[in-house]
Design a binder for these strands. Structure first.
Lengths: 146, 146
DNA sequence: TATTGTTATACTCTATAACTATA
DNA sequence: TATAGTTATAGAGTATAACAATA
């Protein structure tokens, strides 16, 4: 009741997440621009490079992106020779997105670029503080998985 | 080098923040829709209600929103009688945004709505886990303030 | 000259629905 | 009938620059 005197936003999980995300995305995009990537394209490339044969629907769900948006991102990556689409043998509706050698190489560079960018953007002094932050954020980012 | 085998995104602070933010914003907008608010309008109304006399530039910086975007949001809130603009006596370029009585009332309802929505959206069992999350996210959301 | 708020505009992102091809 | 991918499109959000008023 006497609550209105406080700073509601500073206790608001959603606001804090949104603001921190905006900081991170801006820093990430800045770091990836020289490589011709956005954070979204980087995330898609990551899934293609690591989860070999992930389907576009899978990308859509993991990244919480509309399927039609994924089409555009994969189109771009494919046009640049970084990934290719291969239709699944068992279900020819599905297309797996796999990284090409050039895609794997760019992926490695992008991982390094985003890592240092995040270290610069966020004040997490110790490695354990960072580990704890990651652990906590995984629960918030995937709230439905137990 | 053997790093590519892992799941880079699950260790990526930026990706986790972006995904968690998307979950929170969606839940917040759902909870605020009956009140005719978005998370952005709610955040603006919060600042008007709590930091009495905050300037539009101040809102812009705190919310990391473009000044022109703030104009549109304040226009909407003002048109609905929730806030009003008052020009600062000492510097007549600045306009303070203050909540009306109706704005304060809606603000109270919105705080309650977003709180329960977040408790439903995020699995933070104990109060101390929530407190710890808030503390950590404040550092990530405002990385420049020490 | 610099800054606050404003307007206009172009650009991007997002959400929706409809379509195809497979199942 | 249902699902994966695609396309088209309209709506919302974003970024940019220019402008008026004030400092």
């Amino acid at each position: 009741m006497a609550d209105e005197a406080g700073h509601v936003l500073l206790d608001d999980l959603g606001f804090l997440l949104a603001r921190a995300s905006a900081v991170a995305v801006a820093a990430g995009n800045d770091a990836l621009r020289p490589l011709g990537l956005t954070v979204r394209a980087f995330a898609t490339l990551s899934l293609a490079a690591e989860h070999d044969g992930i389907t576009q629907r899978g990308i859509s769900e993991f990244l919480r992106l509309d399927p039609s948006r994924v089409v555009a991102i994969v189109d771009d990556l494919e046009g640049r020779g970084l990934v290719s689409r291969v239709v699944a043998r068992d279900d020819r509706r599905m297309k797996a997105v796999v990284a090409t050698p050039a895609g794997h190489e760019l992926f490695r560079q992008a991982v390094a670029a985003t890592r240092t960018a995040q270290q610069d953007a966020f004040p997490l002094p110790t490695a354990s503080a960072r580990t704890e932050a990651i652990r906590m954020l995984r629960r918030l980012a995937f709230p439905d998985e137990r």
